[in-house]
Design a protein around this nucleic acid. Structure first.
Length: 511
RNA sequence: GCCGCGUUGGUCAAUCGGUUAAGACGCCUCCCUUUCACGGAGGAAUGACGAGUUCGACUCUCGUACGUGGUACCA
C-alpha cells in the first residue's frame, strides 16, 4: 500500500453528562493527529443507550470542543457527507450487519431474559470464577439459536420474542492487533465473552456500532481510552468477520488520567472532593439540577487547557512545555504518548494557565478581563485605563478570575483593610507623616509617578522615618492588603483625589 | 478469581545498552522588590524487587510484587 488514505479520526462521546478531562484529551489527540496529517476530525455521538441519554449533553459537548478550539470538521452540527452522525439516527443500518454476521455464522440469536442471565451468573459463580461470562464455555447451556432447533428459533422470532444478537467468539484463537502506543496486543479468544451486538430494543451496542460506523465513515485512526483494550479483540474480529479487515483503522489506546491522590480513574467526584474541576465547562445536570464547575468558568484559558492536557500523557521529547495549538499539531505524535496512566496535578495545571496569562499580550488579556470585572459590577472607567491596570497586574494572576482581586482597588476604594499589619507599624509620627503628606499632595502641580514618589520619599527623609514603613502603610491604605504592584504606580493610576481620600479613610479608622 | 495493560523523584517526565539519570510543577534557601507576585541563583528528591542476556542494563528477557482497567442488552 504505497498510496496512503486520507487520515480521518473521530471523537465519539456518549451524551450522558459533563465532558471529562480525559474525554477532552482523547478529542484533542484525535484532532491533533488529524490536523498533523492534513486529515479530517469527525464528531460522532454515541447515543445508543436510550436510558442514559441526557438532554442538552450533545450541544454541551459541541460547545466544549468549540471553546477548546478543537471543533470537529464533521459532526451532527455540520452537513458532512457521512451523516447522520448520531448513532440513534443510524439505528436501521446496524441490524443489517448483525444479521449478516448471523448469516455467516459469526453471531447468533440469544433469547435469554435478563433474569435468566442473572440466574446463570449466580449458579456458575464460584470463588475461582466470581463473574462467569456468556462465552464459549457457557453458551451451549443457554437459550439461543446455537442450542435451539432451527424451527424453534424461527418460531421464537416469528412470535416476536425479544432477543439479542451476540458475537460467537471463536475457540482457541489468538487475536492479535497492533496498538500505535503499545505495540502488539494479544488476546486468547476463549477468554473473551460473546458480547451482545444488537440489543433487545434494536439498538446496537458500542461494539457493533463502533465497527460499523468507523467503517462507513472511513475512519483511518481510532483513538480511545485504555479501558477499551479488553474488548478490542471483539472489534478486531468484527472487522474481519464483516469482511472489512483491510480497512480496519489503526488503534491507539490512550493511558488513563488518574486521581491525584489514592488510586483509580479521575472522576467528577474527585474534583468535588479535592476542589478542582474535572469538566471542561460548567455542566448543568437537568436530572439533578446541579451545576458542576468547569475549567472555563474557573478562569482557565482554552489555550492553557489544551496545552496542559496535551502534556498529560505526551511529551515532545524536548524541554519545551508551552505550546500553542499550532505547535502541538506540528510536534504531536502518537508514538510519544506514554503507556502508563498519569495522575492529574491541579497545581501544574494552574501553572500552565499562569504561563499563558503572562505570555498573552495585554490587549488580548483585556478582552477576557473586561467581562469579568463588568460582571462584578465594576465601572471600568475607560479601555485605556483598564489596559494599564491589566499590564500592571497580569503577571500576578494565575486564573482569569484572579484579576478581580488584583485590580478592584484601581476602580474602587477598598472596603476592608489589613489593620493588623498596619497597627504593627502605626504611631503618632506616622500619623503626622500622612497628615503632612496629604497637604503636600495638595500642593503638587503635577501628578505622576516621579513627582509623587519624590514627594513621598522626601517627606519621609525629612521626618526621619523609614521609607519602607510608611510605604507599607500607604499600600494598605490604597489596596487594603499586602499585595499588588508598586504603590506609586497604583497611586498614580487612581489619581491625586482618590489617593488623598484613601489616606484619610484609613487614618480615620485608626482613630 | 481470571484476563489485559502498566511501573524513572511527591507529581508530569527525558533517556530508545555506555550520561555525574535532563527538564518542569510543587517544596526549601538566597538575591531582586522596603508588599505580594514576576524574574534570577542554588538545594533536597528518582530507575519497585529478584534473576538472566551482555564487557556494560533505567533501557532487552523472564519471574515476583504493586498499581490500574476489564470481566453488563454502559459507553
Amino acid at each position: 500500500m504505497i498510496m496512503s488514505k486520507k487520515v480521518r479520526t473521530r471523537f465519539a462521546p456518549s451524551p450522558t453528562g459533563g465532558l471529562h478531562l480525559g474525554g477532552v484529551r482523547t478529542a484533542l489527540y484525535s484532532y491533533l493527529y488529524a490536523k498533523k496529517h492534513k486529515g479530517t476530525f469527525v464528531l460522532r455521538v454515541e447515543d445508543t443507550d436510550q436510558t442514559r441519554f441526557v438532554d442538552g449533553a450533545e450541544q454541551y459537548i459541541i460547545d466544549c470542543l468549540a471553546w477548546c478550539g478543537i471543533s470537529a470538521d464533521e459532526g451532527p452540527h455540520t452537513q458532512g457527507e457521512y451523516a447522520p452522525y448520531r448513532q440513534s439516527e443510524r439505528k436501521e443500518m446496524y441490524k443489517k450487519y448483525a444479521l449478516q454476521l448471523v448469516e455467516s455464522g459469526h453471531a447468533y440469536y440469544a433469547f435469554d431474559t435478563p433474569e435468566e442471565l442473572e440466574k446463570m451468573r449466580e449458579q456458575l459463580k464460584t470463588p475461582q470464577n466470581p463473574s462467569p461470562q456468556y462465552d464459549t464455555h457457557t453458551r451451549m447451556h443457554m437459550k439461543n439459536s446455537l442450542t435451539l432447533l432451527k424451527e424453534e428459533t424461527e418460531k421464537l422470532l416469528a412470535d416476536q420474542v425479544p432477543y439479542v444478537i451476540r458475537i460467537k467468539m471463536p475457540k482457541n484463537e489468538t487475536v492479535t492487533f497492533t496498538d500505535m502506543i503499545r505495540g502488539e496486543i494479544k488476546n486468547d479468544s476463549n477468554l473473551v465473552d460473546d458480547k451482545v451486538l444488537l440489543k433487545g430494543d434494536g439498538m446496537p451496542t458500542y461494539h457493533l456500532a463502533v465497527v460499523v460506523d468507523d467503517y462507513l465513515m472511513k475512519i483511518t485512526h481510532a483513538f480511545r481510552g485504555e479501558e477499551w483494550l479488553p474488548s478490542a479483540p471483539v472489534h478486531v474480529l468484527l472487522w474481519s468477520y464483516l469482511g472489512w479487515g483491510h480497512a480496519m483503522p489503526h488503534w491507539a489506546h490512550l493511558p488513563l488520567i488518574l486521581k491525584p491522590d489514592g488510586h483509580g480513574k479521575l472522576s467528577k467526584r474527585d474534583g468535588d472532593r479535592l476542589g478542582f474541576p474535572v469538566f471542561a465547562m460548567d455542566w448543568y445536570d437537568p436530572k439533578t439540577g446541579e451545576t458542576t464547575k468547569g475549567f472555563k468558568e474557573l478562569g482557565f484559558l482554552p489555550e492553557a487547557f489544551i496545552n496542559l492536557l496535551a502534556l498529560l500523557g505526551w511529551s515532545s521529547g524536548e524541554e519545551k512545555e508551552i505550546f500553542t495549538k499550532e505547535e502541538l499539531i506540528e510536534a504531536f505524535s502518537m508514538e510519544r504518548v506514554h503507556k502508563g496512566g498519569a495522575k492529574f496535578d491541579f497545581e501544574k495545571a494552574k501553572w500552565f494557565n499562569h504561563e499563558w496569562i503572562k505570555k498573552m499580550p495585554v490587549a488580548s488579556c483585556e478582552l477576557f478581563v473586561k467581562p469579568i470585572l463588568e460582571s462584578k459590577g465594576i465601572d471600568i472607567k475607560s479601555d485605556e485605563y483598564l489596559l494599564n491596570v491589566v499590564s500592571l497586574v497580569k503577571d500576578r494572576c494565575t486564573l482569569l478570575n484572579d484579576f478581580y482581586v488584583q485590580s478592584v482597588y484601581f476602580f474602587q476604594a477598598p472596603q476592608e483593610f489589613d489593620l493588623e499589619s498596619v497597627k504593627l507599624k502605626w504611631s503618632a509620627d506616622k500619623a503626622d507623616f500622612f497628615t503632612e503628606l496629604i497637604s503636600r499632595y495638595g500642593q503638587l502641580t503635577e501628578w505622576n509617578l516621579e513627582a509623587l514618589e519624590t514627594c513621598f520619599k522626601a517627606l519621609a527623609t525629612e521626618k526621619n522615618i523609614k521609607v519602607g514603613d510608611v510605604q507599607f502603610i500607604y499600600r494598605i491604605m490604597l489596596v487594603g492588603g499586602k499585595y499588588g504592584p508598586g504603590v506609586f504606580h497604583i497611586s498614580e493610576m487612581i489619581g491625586k483625589q482618590d489617593s488623598m481620600e484613601r489616606i484619610q479613610r484609613l487614618m480615620g479608622l485608626l482613630g
